[in-house]
């Protein structure tokens, strides 16, 4: 009797229960369906932007060389967008030049110099900064920065410099938090090994920690650049929105994003101007792809070494 009872328990434990089969099936279905929804959304977005963006070229309303020229006057149906694209690049590069060294230095301070204080105070503070909506940054820039620069230089204050400064503040927390992750990922043992050879703290940081964290730091900078390149509202509020050549700090310029936000409501769907905005969106999308590719390349190099 007792023996039979034991056998049946063992059998019970061996037989795959129906219930387990259903849980497995349900879990798998949920994840599969979700991933297909995501892929579908992504593909349809890509298709939509690409087809819309290519339309004016396919319809013969504008040629590529016209699009990449500097002749912008919508009332004459001239949509040369080169200065606008360069405007996007200029604010991005300018903001990065300010934020990358600042952000990486701050990350070093938070991880290597004062880790306790960094962890408790500075890291949460940076996370809050990441979360502030871009329109707030733009509003602050418009209220404080633009009049200040105007007074300082003698002008209206809108322009490339204001755009660069607002963006550099915006992307700073992004660069800091990703750099912190990259530096913290450097094994403690590398630092010990370096100290054991008689290296000072700064030598260890400079020659071992930063060198090891370099791919991560570069990822941080590229992500910051991507954020700056794609930012619309804050830029539009301070940049002046005039498609001048973007080679002077104190005159109003335009960027791809500010052009789209400014004009998407003022143009009629179907007219050339509106279609050109879609072409600009396509340029933005392609640039985002480039940024992602760059990050991929950087991180792949780390895997090999």
């Amino acid at each position: 009797m007792k023996e039979r009872g034991n056998t049946s328990l063992a059998e019970k434990l061996q037989t795959p229960a129906r219930r387990i089969f259903w849980t497995e099936w349900r879990g798998r279905s949920i994840t599969y369906v979700s991933v297909w929804i995501v892929i579908l959304i992504l593909l349809s977005l890509l298709w939509f932007i690409t087809s819309k963006g290519l339309q004016p070229f396919l319809n013969g309303e504008i040629t590529l060389s016209q699009f990449f020229s500097t002749n912008w006057s919508p009332q004459d149906n001239k949509f040369g967008s080169l200065y606008i694209m360069l405007g996007s690049f200029m604010v991005t590069i300018g903001a990065t030049l300010i934020s990358a060294p600042l952000g990486i230095s701050a990350a070093i301070f938070m991880t290597e110099i004062a880790p306790k204080w960094g962890k408790k105070v500075l890291q949460p503070a940076t996370e809050i900064l990441v979360g502030i909506p871009s329109v707030v940054y733009g509003f602050i820039g418009l209220t404080l920065l633009v009049p200040f620069i105007g007074k300082l230089i003698g002008g209206i204050g809108f322009g490339l410099l204001s755009g660069i400064l607002v963006l550099s503040i915006m992307i700073l927390p992004t660069i800091i938090s990703i750099s912190v992750d990259a530096i913290e990922a450097v094994p403690q043992k590398y630092r010990e090994g370096s100290y054991a050879l008689g290296a000072t703290r700064w030598q260890t940081i400079w020659k071992i920690v930063l060198k090891t964290a370099l791919p991560g730091l570069m990822t941080a900078v590229v992500l910051g650049m991507a954020r700056a390149f794609g930012e619309a509202l804050a830029v539009q509020m301070v940049i002046g929105n005039v498609p001048n050549a973007p080679f002077h700090f104190f005159i109003s310029i335009h960027t791809l994003t500010s052009m789209i936000t400014q004009n998407m409501g003022n143009t009629v769907p179907g007219e050339t101007f509106n279609q050109i905005l879609w072409s600009m969106a396509l340029v933005l999308l392609l640039m985002t792809l480039v940024f992602i590719l760059v990050i991929r390349l950087i991180t792949r190099r780390r895997d090999v070494s």
């Binding site: 590398y190 010990e192 090994g193 054991a196 050879l197 008689g198």
Partner: peptide, 14 residues
């Protein structure tokens, strides 16, 4: 530390 070289349990080349 320069006078006393240290080697750890895990081999940790940079």
């Amino acid at each position: 530390r320069k006078r006393m070289g240290m080697v750890f349990q895990q081999p940790i080349p940079f």
